[in-house]
Structure formats: structure tokens, C-alpha cells
Design a binder for these strands. Structure first.
Lengths: 308, 308
DNA sequence: ATAACTTTATAACCAAAACCTATAAGTAGC
DNA sequence: GCTACTTATAGGTTTTGGTTATAAAGTTAT
């Protein structure tokens, strides 16, 4: 067994085809095939079922692949540990961000990050919270930017913001006349929601006590931007996180703050336990914090709304 | 970087000498030297300071070695995972046992174990609790047999026994006349103790409220057997765990049981979290449980005495 | 001071492992 | 049965890791 073989194994699991996996590993198809065979022989067990349209892990194979990911991760940690000791911030950072944060937060720090660390390759993916958690545990992501607490003992949370929820009403909705709102107002009909699977949806439902009554049209959106547009062009109202309306929060009378205790969502950087690139993580935190108004920083005030 | 190089690294850390480490790794000294050099070159950092009487890890080196141990451990877990899937119980089992348990428990299950799994190489070492914990975390031991709870979130405990403490008095000691004893009696002078560093000593001290008054001679023993002999040949008394006196517990009038709630020590198998050889662990538990009187099994009764 | 000993590093050479290209072989769909 | 797609095998080349022999450097003992 060697690290290369484990790398081929993981590639094959990812691409489910010897040729493709080989290409992605920058070797020829026979090279990868042979190494996987040798590993199977050494372990004395079949790891993949070969079919005509590719390869699929056997039951044992799936376990072995998971463990192989872990081995490769620990090897990577070793390299990173040395880089940290040398004061280098290089290599790759794979960041997963939920879609209700990405458009408002990523542009605020991305340029600064790659300017601060020109030798760092940054990959950002927009993903659901659950998927980010899975990938962090599988070592397919380095850092997640999402809403906490997650209550998962494999993951380490670094709280950044307590971001208030605001209510955005359409001009002709009864709530448009209000100066402030409270969770009780969410019983009012016409609340637009995010799609199933977004943590923001769960939070809104938790906030209104699961009694949301949507309008006649049951469109559920995949982005906060769509929610905002829905409210602007149609009837109804919706909740938005403050970062999504930062530029208009104090001049748009249709945006309502909640009365204290302000409901907030806790936004955190999340890493696997034992993440060693502390310099990078700290830099990321500082960059993000510096890019948003101070009032949003974690621990200021407000009542955290959970999503799970 | 490859697993072999990491193995050499760990061997070199263990033996602190290129030649010796090479010998233990079954390669020539230049082979090991070159591979360590290559690794240092790849990582771009010096891992060992070479002196005339051997090699010593640098600061970074020490961190890298710890991480290398982790990588090798995860690779080993992969192999074991496959063995478990194949229903095999083979390879090596490195078991650490504290010296107040070893002589009474190990002979009871060792033969049965190697009979049940003839292809399993069993290494048993007698070590202090703290050392066992360290080695379990360093992956230099697979399983520990010691007294719990340890309150260490890296370690997983599998309680086996609640083993009562008994008091053994010399013929001419005042306590010799008693039918039963209670913790309050431990204020009586003449209590022989184990050496510093044995968990049994801490437990006895905890039980008597740290007020132990030893005799004129301040000999502190390294084994329960010595304590027993001291009491037999001299004045005074001592505490012993029941397994140490199993054969005489009901016919030696100088052995006193405690009144309820019986003070007991919780004896457990302890593994690193993520230990995958469940078959082996279960078998070990069953073998040990089958080898001692049922009344000693964990959870029967008694009041656990902690040692840390 | 120097010789003897110990330890690590280097060099030359060899064997094994891993890779590449070319090609065979197997299966699904037409 | 042919085509298109997959994985497996074979032969030859390159790379890697290994060996032995020996140098270099530092300790210890005389």
C-alpha cells in the first residue's frame, strides 16, 4: 500500500471510470488500473466492481475509500503543518459557502485574500449546509462558511457574525405600514420562503413557529435575491439576512427591523478538527470581519435562531 | 512523501540513530538516511539534527513525526478494516496493562486468546496508566487494560469489572479482629501504600481521604504482591483488589470486605476512538469476563473510586 | 596529539516498481 | 454481427529505492 495507490483509489471513486480517473491523476489508464489491482491483491479483497460503463465500489471498497481519504488527509495535514512552521500560506484552499451567504460575503473578502496570499489557490463552491458538512468530514473541503451551531463534534466552529434577520414587505402588504416587526407578525399571510434544504428556510420556519402560510402561488426560491424580487414585483413579504440588504437597510422603509431581542443567524467558519493552517484561518476571519459593519460581529446582541 | 519514508521517520525518532533505525526497519543505513534526506528536501525543512551520537528531531521534526504516526496509524486502520470485513483476526495486538492488574488478569485470558486467534501476535507490556494513555494516543498501543474513568475524549472505554477493594491486616494489627471494615478504618496507622505513579495508590488515598499514616518504615511498593508479603511478615495492613486474593478471599480471616457501598475500581478495556477491530475487542472482553467470577462484572454494585 | 571507534553521508551499481504505448478482450446497444 | 465504449494485458523504458563500499567527521581513550 502507498499513498499514490490510495490517491488512485479516491480518484476512481470520484470519477467511477478508470480512464477518466487516470486522466485526472495525470497518468495513463493502464497505470491506474494496475495499481488498483495491486492494492486489491495486497488487501486480498475486491474494491471495485468493473462493468462496461465503469467501476463501482464494492461494500468493502466504499469503507476502504473513506479510510483512504482519511489517510491522504492526514498526509496533507503533515505537509501543511510544515508550511505553517515555515510561515508559508500556499497550496490550495477549498471553501464551501452556502448560497444565502455567498453573494454578499464572498466578494467582500475574496480579492483581499488572494492579494494577501498570492500563492494560495482558492476554490470556492456554493453548496447546501448539509453538503458542506459532509464534505468537510470527507476532507473534500477545507473550510466551510455557513450558519451555526451545527452540534457536530467532528467539526470546529469559529463564529464570525451574528447577522440580524430583517423583514422585507411589498408596498401594498399590511406589514408595510409598520416601523418594526416581531416574530408574531410572521403569522401574517404572504410569506415567501426559500426552497427545502436551505438552512435559511428552516430558520424562518423556526422563527415563525412553523405556522407559515404562503400565498396562493407556492413558488419557493433558490436564492435570497429571488425572494427580494418576488416581494418587489408581487404581493407578500419575506425575511432577509442583513448582509443581503446592507446598502439599503437604512433608507428603504419597506425593510423592517425586528424588535429586541433581534433574531440573528450565527455565521461561522467551520473546519474539521485538527485543521492546522491557523494563520490562514485567522487571516480569513480577519478579512471577513473587516469587510462587514462592526455591528454584525458575533456576540454583540440578538437571539440566535437555529436551523437544525 | 510516501508511507515508507514516514515509517523510517518514526523509526528514527524511536531509535535516535540512523544505523539502529535502519536495522529495525530491515534496510541498510544508507537506504534510511537517503529517504529521510529526500523527505526533508521535499518538505523543505530539516527534521533531524545529526550529531555524532545519533539524530534528534528538530522542533518541526517533532511535530512532523507525531503527524507521521497519525498517517501510519490511519493506513493501518485501513488494513484492519479490510481484515475485519474478511472476518480475519490476524496481525498484531499491542496491549498495555497496569501492574496491579497484569499478574491476576493476563494469565486468565492469554492462552484462550491465542488459542482463539492463532494468527494473532500478542504483545503485552506492563505500564503505568499514564504511559498507557500516552501510547494509546500515539498509536504505539492498540488496547489498554486499566482502571477508569479516564475522562479523556480521545479514548474510548469499555468497562469490564467493578472490582472490590479488600483490606488485608496482619495477625497482630487491631483491625485483624474485625469482620468487616469501612473507609473510616483507614485512619488507623500502619497502612502500606503502592509507589507514587500507580493508580492504585491514588485510589487508596482517595478512599481514606488522603489521611494515610504509614508505619515507621516508609517502604512504598511497586506491586500488590509485595504489599501482601509486607503485611504477612510485618505489622500493619494494606488494601488489595479482589483479583489479587481470589483464591483465599473466603477462607483467609485476615481479608476483610468493606461494608456496603463496597468501594470498587472500574476495570476497562480502553482503545483509541475509531478502533475498527471490533471482533477482536469483543472477543477480548468476553474472554476476560468469562475468566473471572460473575460477581466482579461491571455494573453489579459498589461505589467507583476514582484515581484521577 | 593521535589512534581507534562510532556515527552519518556519498558514490557506484543493481533490482524492483511504476509508467508508457500498443493492443487485446469483453460487453452494451444498434 | 458491427460499433463504440470500457478494462486488462504485454513489452519496453524510466524512475525509485535498495545494496555494498567507502569517505568524512566527531568522540573517546591512550
Amino acid at each position: 500500500m502507498n499513498l499514490q495507490q490510495l490517491g488512485y483509489l479516491v480518484a476512481l471513486d470520484t470519477h467511477r471510470q478508470f480512464g477518466l480517473a487516470a486522466e485526472k491523476s495525470f497518468v495513463s489508464q493502464p497505470a491506474l488500473s494496475v495499481q488498483v489491482q495491486k492494492l486489491e491483491e495486497e488487501l486480498g479483497v475486491l474494491l471495485f466492481d468493473r462493468t462496461q460503463r465503469g467501476a463501482e465500489p464494492t461494500a468493502v471498497g466504499a469503507q476502504v475509500i473513506t479510510q483512504a481519504r482519511r489517510v491522504l488527509h492526514e498526509a496533507q495535514q503533515l505537509r501543511e503543518l510544515v508550511q505553517v512552521a515555515k510561515g508559508e500560506v500556499v497550496g490550495e484552499l477549498r471553501l464551501g459557502v452556502i448560497s444565502t451567504l455567498a453573494p454578499y460575503l464572498v466578494p467582500r473578502f475574496l480579492v483581499g485574500l488572494s492579494k494577501a496570499y498570492p500563492n494560495l489557490r482558492v476554490h470556492i463552491e456554493e453548496l447546501r449546509s448539509e453538503e458542506i458538512m459532509l464534505r468537510l468530514k470527507d476532507y473534500r473541503l477545507d473550510v466551510g462558511l455557513l450558519v451555526t451551531p451545527l452540534d457536530d463534534r467532528l467539526l470546529h466552529e469559529l463564529p464570525l457574525l451574528d447577522e440580524p434577520f430583517l423583514l422585507l414587505a411589498s408596498e401594498d402588504h399590511p406589514l408595510a405600514a409598520r416601523a418594526t416587526v416581531s416574530p408574531a407578525d410572521l403569522a401574517s399571510p404572504g410569506l415567501w420562503l426559500m426552497q427545502e434544504g436551505h438552512c435559511f428556510r428552516n430558520q424562518v420556519l423556526n422563527l415563525c413557529g412553523r405556522t407559515a402560510s404562503t400565498g396562493a402561488v407556492a413558488y419557493e426560491s433558490g436564492s435570497i435575491e429571488t425572494l427580494k424580487e418576488l416581494v418587489r414585483h408581487h404581493h407578500g413579504y419575506t425575511l432577509v439576512p442583513e448582509l443581503a440588504v446592507l446598502d439599503e437597510v437604512d433608507r428603504n422603509p419597506l425593510l423592517k427591523r425586528f424588535v429586541a431581542p433581534t433574531p440573528v443567524r450565527e455565521v461561522s467558519l467551520v473546519v474539521h478538527h485538527g485543521f492546522v493552517r491557523t494563520t490562514l484561518l485567522t487571516a480569513l476571519r480577519e478579512l471577513i470581519l473587516a469587510s462587514v459593519p462592526t455591528r454584525l460581529r458575533a456576540g454583540k446582541a440578538g437571539e440566535k435562531v437555529r436551523w437544525r
